[in-house]
Design a protein around this nucleic acid. Sequence first.
DNA 1: ACAAAAGTGTTGAGAGTACACCCATGC
DNA 2: GCATGGGTGTACTCTCAACACTTTTGT
Lengths: 231, 231
Amino acid sequence: MAEKYNIDQYERPSVTVDVVIFTLLDEDPKVLLIKRKAWPYQDNWAIPGGFVHIDESLEAAAYRELAEETNVTREQLYLEQLYTFGEPNRDPRTRVITVSYFSLVSADKLSPKAADDAADVGWFSVYNLPPLAFDHAEIINYALIRLRYKLEYTAIGFELLPEQFTLRELQDAYEIVLGTKLDKGNFRSKLRKSNVVEMVEGYRDTGGRPARLYRFREDAVAEVKTRRLFP
Amino acid sequence: MAEKYNIDQYERPSVTVDVVIFTLLDEDPKVLLIKRKAWPYQDNWAIPGGFVHIDESLEAAAYRELAEETNVTREQLYLEQLYTFGEPNRDPRTRVITVSYFSLVSADKLSPKAADDAADVGWFSVYNLPPLAFDHAEIINYALIRLRYKLEYTAIGFELLPEQFTLRELQDAYEIVLGTKLDKGNFRSKLRKSNVVEMVEGYRDTGGRPARLYRFREDAVAEVKTRRLFP
DNA sequence: ACAAAAGTGTTGAGAGTACACCCATGC
DNA sequence: GCATGGGTGTACTCTCAACACTTTTGT
């Protein structure tokens, strides 16, 4: 039936999904990488990914890849489509078009397995990446730009933190991702006005005065109002 | 060789590109649509698109589709990737994943052919679209959100205008796309500060005092500085 | 008492907003 | 002159950014 409508007059490419998974660990944004075991790029590191099954949505394929490499459920992470890379020779085997995804996981949700397993999977600082397979360096770079960008105009930063956090921890997360220092007073007053966090019971012990714990207000996501920048 | 590495253990989907082409005409944002001549969705309207050839980049495919439906060259339009839609049943023939693109063309560049040809191609107001094939309504909706969004934080609005334009025409373009009225004085002073337009020789005759002509300063694109909105 | 980190307040500069006013052309 | 649309200026408000200050804990 398909032939009748000429849908097969063109050779079909392979389609994969690749997922850039970010977390914050030890003062740096980190990306999950996997060591390839087969040609091409054998023994190079790569971001998790694989072929899209014929009856599976792109998003389902991305969640499947995520589940294979981390023990984090759908509800515990943020996922969005990033960009589709399809240069004809990005894979030496055949034409492969990859739909890349962008994911955020908080470090506390990571199971020990994925976090410190053997030598074939690991978290790498975005500032110190090993040689990467295919065009994965470009994909990670694109994802990092997107991460910084989203942090600045949405309330997405919370996806990188535990359920409960102190304001200092939130500010640290912002500073790590953006790579700049922020003013404590201004950070807090702006946060108070935006109304996206609420105080919860309890304190976290620190070196000095204990810090109040906060959580993200679920109903507040849409409230981050955008303002026209231009003109 | 491919089989040896299991790249063909999965059935391959078809991959298309679809292009949402915007222009401004008669007080509304308009989208270019084409009437389908074959099953499925025969006689429904659709955005221009087609299969990606096996040795062709995605972007090249998008430009090819653009060239087939408008007589506008690469330099005369803006093109960027929008989103990849791949729900398993979006096309009744077979699994088709489409990489959608987003394009802006100024109305003055459109050739008469595409602009007022026969009944099988035409410009439709985004506020009054006919029934559309596949998930193209969703794609156009997504593109319209992107258009508004980009207008607010980049200098992309110029892609919808001729080389030379008056400030009133620029403001009209913004008001049409954003769907809101803007203050003339504030629009102009902000524009002056941003330094992205420059005055050129000549005037445009209007009902009253003739208006100065301006053009976009090519070297100014990157200057639109972003400011952190959150927190 | 002192160090350390949490948390708040103040102030001047600059941006956003609403609105009034002046300018150049056609009739 | 007057209508029409182009173009500018002002004054009030609000936000931004830097920085100083106060509070609560541990030792």
